[in-house]
Amino acid sequence: MSAVAIEGVWKFYGDYPALRDVRLEAERGACLALIGRNGAGKTTLLRVVAGFSRPGRGKVQIFGNEPRETETRRQMGFIGHGISVYDELSAFENLMLYAKLYNLPNPKKSAMEWLERTGLERVRNGLVREFSRGMRQRLAVARAFLHEPTVLLLDEPFTALDDKAITVLQKLLKEALAAGKTIVMSTHQLREALELATHVALLNRGQVAFHGPRTPEMVSDPGYVYARYGEG
């Protein structure tokens, strides 16, 4: 059973199909990079996989379950465009909030552990609105990893990050892959993404234009996939 199976997914905005018959799979321990131009449907697809919006046709299965099932959501980590933490709460309070929502056995311990892993334990009682950009992003990473998800969905994870946050995130993602977790990410940062990716899918106007394992050519020339398969 694949970790993430996208089976013939269509998504409509009115009559306009933003996703057309998308079929993709990611095995346990795989990292699937979704690439494509703006408006190709990468974010839409990730939101459907995450269960934020329902597909018009087709279905998504995460370890054989629907995305909206409680059990699935417990296994899923999502990093979107925003940092998804509250400016008015402290770093610790933010992580405690999510730890409680995910019903972690020891919320305090998990929160402290992730503050430490993202280098925020010194400022744990500071309000997020006083944080620098980099600190906010690291907290966002801590928030997404807090409940030890087995499937990670990342929407443009490297775009807004500073160097330190990129380092933290890449280290975490490599560890996650090594531990057999599954990653699906959309990205423009081909170099960072292709280094991690085991598979690549190119979306073009809501359709899968290419899907296959990452090859050495792609790493040496990030424009290779586009040149070869896309945008004719």
Partner: peptide, 13 residues
């Protein structure tokens, strides 16, 4: 209207 809207989106894409 819906058809028009979808054509417009298509054109933007």
């Amino acid at each position: 209207q819906r058809e028009l809207d979808s054509l417009r989106r298509m054109a933007h894409a």
